[in-house]
């Protein structure tokens, strides 16, 4: 077989395996985790039914395509003066389709000086990553972005 031809075939096989995982996820019966917490339920508990507005003040940074589902970088930055009278109280981060959607809730104070939190999360499959930001005046801001999870690369 010519190498070029071989690579075409190799590429085709690779493409199929890259597509397959997201489908097999749904078919398997999943074992239960320690905390089942849907995104909707979490949202209700946190906001108490108050509206959470999409705001340009909240910057949610996640990759569009994740290299792997085990380590997905997430950064939330909020435009805030972080003074006693006006600061970000809490940054919540969610993996909306994970069986426990709650990843982390970070309670900040003016002593942080800047409202930013960065971490890495696990994603069970392609889904939205969302953040809800609770301001010191009791209002809620939100942002969400979709992350495609593929099983990429070799080894």
């Amino acid at each position: 077989m010519q190498r070029r031809e071989f690579f075409k075939k190799l590429g085709a096989v690779a493409a199929v395996t890259a597509v397959m995982p997201s489908m097999s996820f749904a078919e398997e019966a999943k074992p239960k985790g320690p905390n089942e917490f849907s995104y909707q339920k979490a949202l209700d508990v946190i906001t108490g039914g108050k509206p959470a507005k999409t705001s340009s003040k909240v910057q949610l940074k996640v990759p569009e395509i994740a290299e792997n589902g085990a380590v997905v970088p997430v950064t939330v930055e909020v435009d805030s003066p972080m003074t006693e009278s006006d600061y970000v109280k809490t940054i919540h981060i969610f993996a909306t389709k994970n069986s426990n959607s709650r990843c982390v809730s970070v309670h900040l104070t003016p002593a942080n000086g800047k409202a930013m939190f960065a971490t890495r999360i696990k994603l069970g499959g392609t889904q939205d990553v969302a953040t809800i930001v609770e301001m010191s005046d009791g209002t809620f801001l939100t942002a969400a972005q979709s992350v495609k999870v593929t099983i990429g690369g070799c080894g």
């Binding site: 809730s105 942080n112 939190f117």
Partner: peptide
Amino acid sequence: ITTMNVWESLSTNPVFTTY
């Protein structure tokens, strides 16, 4: 200055970064 509630969805060998 900062407290965090954390769940199992954070990656292995987790990292927590703020200012």
